[in-house]
Simulated scan of single mutants.
Amino acid sequence: MVKVEELKKDIQAYAKTIGIDKIGFATADIFTEMKERLRRQQELKYQSGFEKGSIEERTEPRRLLPEAKSIISIAVAYPSRMETTPRGTKGDRRGIFARASWGIDYHVALRERLDKLGEYIKDKVPDAVIKSMVDTGELSDRAVAERAGIGFSGKNTSIITKEYGSFVYLGEMLTNIPFIPDSPVEDGCGDCTICLDACPTGAIVQGGQLNAQRCIAFLTQTKDFLPEEFRNKIGNRLYGCDTCQQVCPWNRDKDSHFHQELEPEPELVKPRLKPMLHLSNREFKEKFGHMSGFWRGKKPIQRNVILALGHYKEASAETDLIAVMENDPRPVIRGTAAWSLGKIGTDAAREALSKALEKENHEQVQFEMENALSAMTVK
Rank of each mutant, 00 (worst) to 15 (best):
L65A: 09
K90C: 03
I72R: 06
R99S: 12
I71N: 13
E56H: 03
I72A: 10
I71M: 06
R93V: 11
I18L: 07
Q41P: 02
E5C: 01
Q41D: 09
K16M: 00
T59G: 02
V4G: 03
E60F: 11
E43K: 15
E36Q: 09
K9T: 03
M82S: 00
S73F: 09
A15R: 04
S70F: 01
A77H: 07
L7M: 04
D21T: 02
S80R: 10
I71S: 13
D105E: 14
V2Y: 05
R94T: 11
S80F: 03
A26V: 01
F25P: 10
S80H: 05
W102Q: 12
S101I: 06
E57Q: 14
F97W: 15
T89K: 15
L38I: 01
A75L: 10
R63G: 11
E36D: 10
T32N: 04
S80A: 08
R63F: 05
K69M: 09
R62P: 07
L7Y: 01
A68K: 03
I18W: 02
V4L: 04
T27R: 06
Q41K: 13
K90A: 14
R40S: 09
G91E: 08
P61F: 00
A15K: 01
R87D: 12
K16N: 00
G49L: 10
P86L: 14
I55L: 04
T85P: 00
G88R: 02
Q47V: 13
I72F: 04
I96A: 11
A77F: 08
E51Q: 06
S70V: 05
D21Q: 09
S101L: 11
L7F: 06
K90L: 12
R62Y: 03
L44N: 14
D10H: 04
M82H: 01
G103P: 05
G103H: 09
E67G: 07
R37I: 00
K69C: 06
E60Q: 12
I74K: 04
Y14K: 09
E67A: 15
G49E: 15
G19E: 01
A98P: 14
I30R: 07
D92T: 07
G95W: 04
I74Q: 03
T59W: 07
E57N: 10
I96M: 14
I30P: 05
I74A: 03
H107A: 14
E5M: 08
L65K: 10
R63S: 06
F31L: 04
V76L: 10
K45P: 11
Y46H: 15
D10K: 09
S101V: 13
K22Q: 09
A98K: 13
S80Y: 02
I72Y: 03
I55G: 06
I18F: 05
E33T: 02
K90S: 11
E36H: 08
A75S: 10
Q47F: 13
G53M: 05
E5P: 00
I20V: 07
L65T: 13
V76W: 05
